[in-house]
């Protein structure tokens, strides 16, 4: 499987993170979106007319929408019954809204993307509050993750844009349940980081101790 990848993209990271957590190897093709605009070349558009990253290529299958890529890579993380799959689908849609608000704020604040920063931050904050409330509900049931006792596509889809909210000027300090959820995800075996989402150094031993 080949993933057209950009190191600064939370959407690309979702695919890499899920592959890492489920023990699948991806061949990544680095794509210079910025400043190179590689995604606007005719060859890239030929593969993905929307000119977005990531793109997953597996044989004849070419996937360009993040939820589709996660479903394809997710295997049994995607749920084994209609109720669970539908629950996850709700969060996959929610994660697209995160990308369009918190993710947008980050692109504006960091890389001068066009858009209304204050509006994106306000809309993103509303979504963070919803996520926090939901994660508190889950805590009352003794669960750390969004839809089940174990992590699912729902968690992986929402995690990156939430964690990168500070890059777009939105603080995560008010969200205790989100903080606990983020620690649970970052503690998973096979977890990989992206710039802005560091590993938990506390999981490695103190040298010399």
């Amino acid at each position: 499987m080949k993933l057209y990848d950009w190191v600064l993209s939370p959407d690309c990271y979702k695919a890499r993170l899920l592959a890492a957590l489920t023990g699948q190897s991806l061949t990544t093709v680095a794509t210079d979106v910025f400043p190179g605009k590689d995604h606007l070349t005719p060859a890239f558009r030929d593969m993905n007319p929307r000119a977005t990253l990531p793109v997953l290529v597996a044989g004849d299958l070419v996937l360009t929408e993040v939820p589709a890529i996660l479903i394809y890579l997710g295997g049994d993380w995607g749920g084994d019954n209609a109720t669970e799959r539908a629950r996850q689908a709700e969060w996959l849609t929610f994660s697209q809204r995160l990308a369009g608000t918190l993710g947008l704020a980050r692109r504006i604040d960091m890389m001068d993307a066009p858009g209304d920063l204050a509006q994106a931050q306000r809309d993103g904050t509303r979504l963070l509050r919803q996520l926090e409330a939901r994660l508190f509900d889950r805590q009352t049931l003794g669960h750390a993750f969004l839809t089940g006792p174990a992590p699912t596509l729902a968690d992986i889809a929402c995690f990156p844009d939430v964690m990168l909210a500070p890059d777009g000027g939105v603080s995560l300090a008010p969200y205790a349940a989100i903080r606990a959820w983020s620690r649970a995800i970052r503690s998973l075996p096979g977890f990989i980081e992206m710039p802005g989402i560091p590993r938990l150094h506390e999981l490695s031993p103190e040298p010399g101790a």
Binding site: A173, A176, A177, R179, A180, R183, E202
Partner: peptide, 14 residues
């Protein structure tokens, strides 16, 4: 903070 929101071996800004 509430005690339940500060697990052992964690740090938070307040």
């Amino acid at each position: 903070a509430l005690s339940r929101d500060l697990a052992p071996a964690t740090a938070i800004p307040v």
